[in-house]
């Protein structure tokens, strides 16, 4: 009976305050969408890190004809120099740091290049002798790049040593900045949401002061008087959170799974599964925000 009564109170409260409830739904929707995107961006970064760090290598590029660097002054790498580098990579001094390495000839380099840029017209203009031959070195610990750099970059026949991880770090730092911006916007929007919930509950308490006054006088418990108001805020916020989760799911489904992962099959993307993991957290966050904010408001504006 009491439950049915509380439910009917909530329903009448939501009806009476419809425009405010809609605004609470929208503001929580927007703010939690930003919270969710920040979280998804972080997930994406972690996933890409895991994926790429397994694959990235240190590339030791060898000299070709007329390369500008000091170590290439004597022209293209000789067979002797190449063997020396190969030997060095297999030597006891370097071995502990190297997981594996392989030689990539100019023809292989062209094949890789063609595969990577197969959608681009540049492919047809590139020939094998424009690409340097290289040793692809996979390190046990990618952080130890400096050691390889020091050992090989001064060797004759080596043009340059490139740490591919560094390139990735740049991308990741861009993504980190994007997620920080999302967090910043989310923070502002959450403050908006909290204040809006507080205002809504205040209005609601004011418009129902007759009922609550009578409830007080006939001895209704604090719970029965306040719960409809708190739940009103929580329901609106949860609705917003569900919309936010839905929007993120749609992005993951149609944009990421539908397009990005098809266009870039070589890259790991977050999936809708990740969004489903995130959704309960968003709903809980929305409910918590509204619950705390309305409970605090009621303490001030609804005497019991």
């Amino acid at each position: 009976m009491r439950l049915a009564f509380i439910l009917s109170e909530i329903a009448s409260g939501l009806r009476r305050n419809l425009s405010m409830v809609v605004s609470v739904v929208l503001v929580t929707f927007v703010s939690l969408t930003f919270v969710g995107s920040a979280a998804l961006l972080q997930m994406q970064i972690n996933q890409m890190k895991g994926f790429w760090y397994d694959r990235v290598q240190v590339a030791v590029f060898l000299c070709g004809e007329d390369y500008g660097s000091a170590t290439c002054a004597e022209g293209a790498v000789t067979d002797e120099q190449r063997d020396g580098i190969r030997e060095m990579l297999g030597s006891d001094a370097v071995k502990p740091y190297v997981d594996s390495f392989e030689y990539e000839s100019q023809d292989q380099a062209l094949a890789h290049f063609r595969e990577q840029f197969r959608n681009s017209p540049i492919v047809d203009t590139v020939t094998a002798d424009q690409l340097p031959e290289s040793f692809r070195v996979k390190l046990v610990d990618p952080e130890k790049y400096e050691i390889i750099n020091e050992l090989f970059s001064s060797m004759k026949g080596v043009d340059v040593v490139v740490d591919q991880r560094e390139l990735l770090e740049k991308i990741f730092s861009m993504m980190n900045i994007a997620s920080l911006v999302a967090v910043g916007i989310a923070a502002v929007m959450i403050v908006c949401a909290i204040l809006l919930v507080a205002t809504t509950i205040r209005l609601s308490a004011f418009s129902r002061r007759r009922e609550t006054g009578i409830m007080r006088l006939v001895g209704a418990s604090k719970l029965v008087i306040q719960l409809p108001f708190v739940l009103e805020g929580v329901i609106a916020a949860v609705l917003g959170a569900v919309l936010a989760a839905g929007a993120l799911w749609a992005v993951a489904q149609f944009l990421i799974e539908g397009r990005l992962s098809r266009e870039y099959p070589g890259t790991a993307f977050i999936s809708t599964g990740d969004v489903l993991l995130l959704a309960p957290a968003l709903v809980a966050l929305g409910a918590l925000l509204a619950g705390v904010s309305s409970a605090l408001t009621l303490r001030r504006y609804l005497k019991v």
């Binding site: 009976m1 009491r2 009564f5 009922e211 009578i214 006939v218 209704a220 418990s221 029965v224 008087i225």
Partner: peptide
């Protein structure tokens, strides 16, 4: 009835 509903009296 309101006075009875809010203190949880049965229908």
């Amino acid at each position: 009835a309101f006075a009875m509903q809010v203190i949880g009296k049965s229908r």
